[in-house]
């Protein structure tokens, strides 16, 4: 059994929506371990997004405990929560969310600069290795708006991986890509998972991702409808 990165224990998340309180997640418990390739799936309004935010240290639980590498996120200040995100989680967004004023290299290097601690040459080496891995070595000096959607998402993947996070949280990574590109991106992530042992957690309703996932957590009405290991 590998080490748990994330564990949710009886987690409930309530949002104030005007004067009413909406319960987005209700009494959810599960654990994500190193090396997993997991998809959380569910229709809109199922609580999938709330769950993603809780795991991504963007929100904290109303009740129950969300532990990220052993830290109860509800007990952390915004500053320490931010640091936890930086050190532990790599984000991949539906809209790629690259910083348009920076080049591809600078975008990938960005989290390393925030984290500090590496020399310039160490950073360069890491960035270049990753860019080669996602197949964008020749686009290093380009700006995001000079790239295609698929290329942008590859940059985003490189950026998510650059800090060597324990977990990559991918939020609908294929939603804005055509089907062929989407498949390539999924292949790339799957490859990384297998070769580099990178843990991926998807929040998605893309069937191609669900089909490739090794564990599928189905969410409905804020609860876990099913949580199954898929043997491939």
């Amino acid at each position: 059994m590998t080490t748990p990165i994330i564990s949710l224990e009886n987690v409930t998340k309530n949002y104030a929506l005007g004067s009413t309180v909406v319960t987005a997640v209700s009494g959810v418990s599960f654990v994500i371990r190193e090396g997993e390739f997991t998809a959380i799936a569910g229709p809109s309004g199922s609580g999938k997004t709330a769950l993603r935010n809780l795991i991504g240290c963007i929100d904290t639980a109303s009740e129950g405990v969300v532990s990220v590498r052993g830290h109860n996120t509800a007990a952390l200040s915004d500053r320490r929560l931010t640091r936890l995100r930086l050190d532990t989680i790599g984000f991949i967004f539906q809209n790629f969310n690259l910083i348009n004023v920076l080049t591809v290299v600078q975008n990938v290097e960005f989290p390393l600069l925030l984290a500090g601690g590496l020399s310039s040459s160490e950073r360069q080496e890491r960035v270049n290795t990753l860019l080669a891995k996602v197949g964008l070595a020749q686009f290093a000096k380009h700006r995001p708006n000079e790239l295609s959607g698929g290329q942008r998402q590859r940059v985003a993947i490189a950026r998510a991986l650059v800090t060597r996070p324990k977990l990559v949280l991918a939020d609908e990574p294929t939603a804005n890509l055509d089907s062929a590109t989407g498949t390539q991106i999924i292949d790339l992530m799957h490859e990384l998972n297998r070769n580099e042992k990178t843990t991926f957690l998807f929040s998605t309703h893309d069937h191609r991702i669900m089909d490739r996932a090794e564990r599928l957590i189905q969410v409905a009405d804020g609860r876990i409808a099913s949580d199954e290991q898929v043997q491939r």
Binding site: I58, T82, R83, R85, F91, N97, I99, F110, P111, A160
Partner: peptide, 8 residues
């Protein structure tokens, strides 16, 4: 985005 990926 910056905040999400770890900017204080």
């Amino acid at each position: 985005t910056m905040r999400a990926i770890g900017a204080q």
